[in-house]
Design a binder for these strands. Structure first.
Lengths: 198, 198
DNA sequence: TTAGATAATGAATTATTATTCATTCCAGCG
DNA sequence: CGCTGGAATGAATAATAATTCATTATCTAA
């Protein structure tokens, strides 16, 4: 098995992304991936241990890239609200730019759960970023003190994922990033938005 | 293939639920399901067309049951807020009561998407319920007029699913239903909860 | 009690694919 | 030009599991 991350290695990973997104991990075959990448079946085994390893590498790689970008996005903001907005914006942007990744992260939930111990998984790090943001917001006084942080962060992540999921189902026919501001508005103000309830 | 919904039919479906939840659809084997149900492998084929059909029937059945209950829950409420609260409460209650269902609905996203045309799927009907509630809230004046309903309903469903997902990952070690009120509070008031901005 | 029908069994069959590895290709070098 | 070692090939192999069906068990009604 080759060690270096050659051009061919990336070609195969990209093709695997296409095929996994299209057919799902289990229905995808090695032959499909190989022919999509323009190499022979056996060649995949020069670069990857087995079929599982291809998915594993795909996820690790994408996770690392997105992780990096999200961290930067958050660091760019000053207030908690800015940080939250930047994070959501970045999230939607990255997933819109890479629909295969979006589909695979949605579809292979089971696999993601199974490897969650070996990998710094994306949900975990996302939830940690959110914890920090919320705590900062509470200190600043821009967010309520009576929040149960464990719930709030899950609430926020779940909602973005839901929005992405709908976008994926719609075959990506509209601008996902345009949802960022309305979404953040909902996080901050809710559907009541300060209307008096007696 | 038997037509009537005998006791054995349900025994097999329940066992399949256990096995699918535990191993995922693709890694689960017919033999596992059969032995769990205390019947021979061949017997499954007297009740189901094939392996896919078992998952299909499982999902159809659970969807129908939950659909019914959610409708009732919503109908019981009077105001939009009551309806929303009842819906979320019912949702969390049903999934807490049937962890296998919760796991399968989370894990087999891909399969769910693929059969979404043949089946009155649970997300679709859920989103429709939410649309009605939000519109009612706007008419009542208890919800903002400037909401993009398409986004709001996705936001709400995504957040509940996220909360359930965390609960599943935690092996169901805490009371899921207790999350209902804090969650609804977040939907209505957001994390700012009326704290002045600016 | 038993003939006929119905249900259940599980070993054998079949189909599918991941994986291996003997062979071929090819780039760089003396 | 040959030679050599690493890279690539793809047909053959192996393993897994879904599905079938000849056989056996169980039930029902006369």
């Amino acid at each position: 098995m080759q060690k270096n991350r050659s051009e061919k290695y990336h070609k195969i990973l990209t093709s695997a992304g296409d095929v996994f997104a299209r057919f799902g991990f289990y229905k995808a075959t090695i032959s499909q991936i190989a022919s999509q990448a323009g190499v022979a079946d056996g060649t995949l085994y020069l670069y990857f241990k087995n079929k599982d390893d291809i998915l594993y590498q795909f996820i690790s790689y994408k996770t690392a890239v997105v992780f990096e970008k999200m961290n930067t996005a958050v660091a760019t903001g000053k207030t908690a609200e800015e940080k939250l907005r930047n994070l959501i914006h970045c999230h939607l942007q990255e997933f819109q730019n890479d629909k295969n990744m979006a589909v695979i992260f949605q579809s292979e939930v089971r696999y993601l759960r199974d490897i969650q111990s070996q990998i710094k998984d994306i949900s975990k790090m996302y939830l940690d970023l959110l914890s920090d943001i919320i705590e900062q917001g509470q200190i600043e006084g821009s967010m309520r003190q009576d929040l149960f942080v464990g719930l709030v962060k899950r609430f926020i992540l779940g909602a973005v994922e839901g929005v992405i999921s709908t976008w994926v189902s719609a075959e990506g026919r509209y601008d996902l990033v345009a949802m960022a501001d309305p979404l953040v508005d909902l996080y901050l103000n809710g559907v009541r938005g300060g209307i008096n309830s007696i």
